[in-house]
Design a binder for these strands. Structure first.
Length: 118
DNA sequence: AACTTGACAAAAA
DNA sequence: GTTTTTGCCAAGT
């Protein structure tokens, strides 16, 4: 598997999600400057380097779908792992669902401009 | 080059 | 709330 530049953009964007918050695949795609490529986000999160990126871990588990649910099959190993990570950060997960009204990351625009150096 | 797949999404019913 | 339909687009075969 080749690491494409898009993957790095996505991983770095995911690193901006604060603990205790979640973002959707489409939201990350947009913020990473890759509108319309939500599916690519899911794809490349499966390739997240175990050692992290830029010396920092990539919190892949803070990314869920736009319906506010964990996108792995209910009860699967991946599902349970993601749910556990989120609950460890005080995110309330009921079944597969997370209340976006309470937990969705609302990025601060000026902070983003600073962090992403555009 | 054609066809399928997927950690997706928006709108409609 | 739910499911269905349609659009999406990079990767893999």
């Amino acid at each position: 598997m080749t690491i494409k530049p898009e993957y790095l953009k996505i991983w770095r964007t995911v690193q901006l999600i604060p603990a205790g918050k979640v973002a959707s695949y489409g939201q990350i795609a947009d913020l990473a400057g890759l509108p319309g490529r939500a599916r690519l986000v899911g794809k490349c999160l499966g390739y997240v380097p175990e050692d992290g990126v830029d010396g920092q871990n990539v919190p892949w588990y803070r990314v869920i779908n736009s319906a506010g649910k964990i996108s792995f099959p209910l009860g699967s190993e991946h599902f349970e792992r993601q749910k556990q990570h989120l609950q460890d950060e005080q995110v309330v997960v009921i079944g597969a669902r997370i209340r976006l009204a309470d937990f969705q990351w609302q990025p601060d625009i000026t902070e983003l401009l600073f962090r992403l150096q555009y």
